[in-house]
Design a binder for these strands. Sequence first.
DNA 1: CGTTGACCTTGACGTTACGTCAACTTCTAC
DNA 2: GTAGAAGTTGACGTAACGTCAAGGTCAACG
Lengths: 249, 249
Amino acid sequence: MEWSIQDVARLAGTTSRTLRHYGELGLLTPSRVGGNGYRYFDQDCLVRLQRILLLRELGLGLPAIAEVVNGAQRDTVAALRTHLDLLEQERERIGRQIESVKTTLRKTEEGEQLMAEEVFDGFDHTQYEQEVTERWGREAYQRGDRWWRSLSDAEKAAFKQRQVDIAKAFAGALLAGLPADDDRVQAITQRHFDWLSISPSPTRGHFVALGEMYVADPRFTDAYDRHGTGTAVLVRDAMKVFAERNLND
Amino acid sequence: MEWSIQDVARLAGTTSRTLRHYGELGLLTPSRVGGNGYRYFDQDCLVRLQRILLLRELGLGLPAIAEVVNGAQRDTVAALRTHLDLLEQERERIGRQIESVKTTLRKTEEGEQLMAEEVFDGFDHTQYEQEVTERWGREAYQRGDRWWRSLSDAEKAAFKQRQVDIAKAFAGALLAGLPADDDRVQAITQRHFDWLSISPSPTRGHFVALGEMYVADPRFTDAYDRHGTGTAVLVRDAMKVFAERNLND
DNA sequence: CGTTGACCTTGACGTTACGTCAACTTCTAC
DNA sequence: GTAGAAGTTGACGTAACGTCAAGGTCAACG
C-alpha cells in the first residue's frame, strides 16, 4: 500500500508543502520516488509522520524532532510508548487549564479576588522540549557514551583521526572541483560509510537523512566545513549518490 | 494589585518580548504605564492574557484573537464559558490521539496492517479557527436579539416594515434575473446594510457571516424567501459582493 | 554618594516553519 | 487530444516572535 503526497497530506490534516519541507530536512523521506520525481509514502512513513506531528504539537522544533526520529530511538515501539506518556501528560495539563478557567470564571462571577498563579496553571507548555530531549537525549547519549567509553584512549584518538582524515579528503575533492558522483568522491564516501557503520548499520533512508542533517546541524557542518567551506554540502550530495547506488531500503 | 512585565511573563510562562508584541497589536494594553515608560498589569489584564493564550493554543492567529477579545465578546463570563467548551473539546481530541497512538502501537507490535485514517485521528487541529468564528457569529446574533427586545412595539413594527420592503425589492430583483453584483441589486443591499447598521456597525467579516446566517437559519430564510424562493441566496451573494466592495476588515 | 546588577525601554534585524506564487511537467479522463 | 487535477523545483513572502544593541531606571549595599 502506497500513498501520494496529497493523499498523505489529507490523511494527516496537513499540506503537501509541509511534507516536502520535512523531506528537505531529512525528517520524512518518501519510501519511493518515481522516475517522474513524484513522492510516494508507505505505512512506515505514516507512522513516522504520526510521530513527527506529535512531537511538533508538543512544541519541539524541527531540528530537535529530526534528532529524535533519526538518531536515537531505532525502536519504534518504545518510541510510541514514550509518546503515549507525553500525551497523557498533555491531557493532564489541559485538565489543569480547565480547572484554571473554571476558577477564573467562578471568581469573576462572584466578584472575588483571584490569585495570579492559579490563573495560569497549566498554561506553560514550554516544558516539553526539555522533557523530550532529556528523555531521548539521555537514552541516545547513554548508548553513544557507553560505546565511546568502552574504547581505549588509542581507539578514541583513532576514531577522531579517521573523521578528520575523511573530512580533509572531502575538502580536497571539493577543491579539485570533483562532483558528488565522481568515483573518487564515492570512494571517500565509502570510507565515510564504513566509519559511521561502526554504530548499527543504517538503511538507505537513514543514511540520506543523516546527510541532510550534516547541512542542517551546525555542529556537523562545522566539523566538515572547517576543512573548506562547502565541504558539508559535498558530503551530503555524495552520501545521497552513495545511498542510491549501494544501499537498499 | 499590580505586576511588572517580567512578573506577568513568569506567571504565564511566556516572555516579556511576547507581552510587548501583544501590546503593539493592541491585544493586551497595560493597565498603567509609568512616567518612565514601564508597563504595569492588573487583574483584568491577567484574565485577558489567559484568554489570549488559550485562543493561541487553539491555533488562532493573533489578528483573529484580536477580533475575538476586542470586538464581539464584551461579556467576559460568556467568553470564558466558550473557552471552557473549547478546552473540553481539545481534551477529547487528545483522547482520540491517544487512542490512535495506542492502535498504532498494538498493530505495530503484532505486525498487523494499520488503517491510514485511524493513524491520524485527532491530529488535525485546524478545525478550531472555524469553530470559534462560528460561535462568535452566533453570539453576535444573540446580542442583536437582546437589542430587538429592548425596542417599543412601534419601533419593532417600523423595523419590520423596512425589512419587508427590502425583501420585496430583493425578490423583485431575483424575478428580473439580476445578478448579485448588479448595480441595482447593490443599491438594495446598501439599504439592507443601512437597515442592519441600526445595530452596532459591522465589519466585513461580520457582514459576510451574517449573510451566511441568512441561508443557514430558517427564521431568516423564511423572512426573505416568502417573497420568492431563492431570495435568501441572492441576498447572501449580494451581501458578499457589497462587503468586498464597501467594507474593510 | 557612587556603583553594581537586575529590570525596563525602544528600535531593528534574524529565525522558524511553513504559505504562496511562478513556470513547468505529468497523469487521468472524457 | 485536450482539459484539468496533481506533481515538480525554485524563490520570495509572512507570522510570531527571538535576539542583539544602546541606553534609561531602580533597589540596595558598602
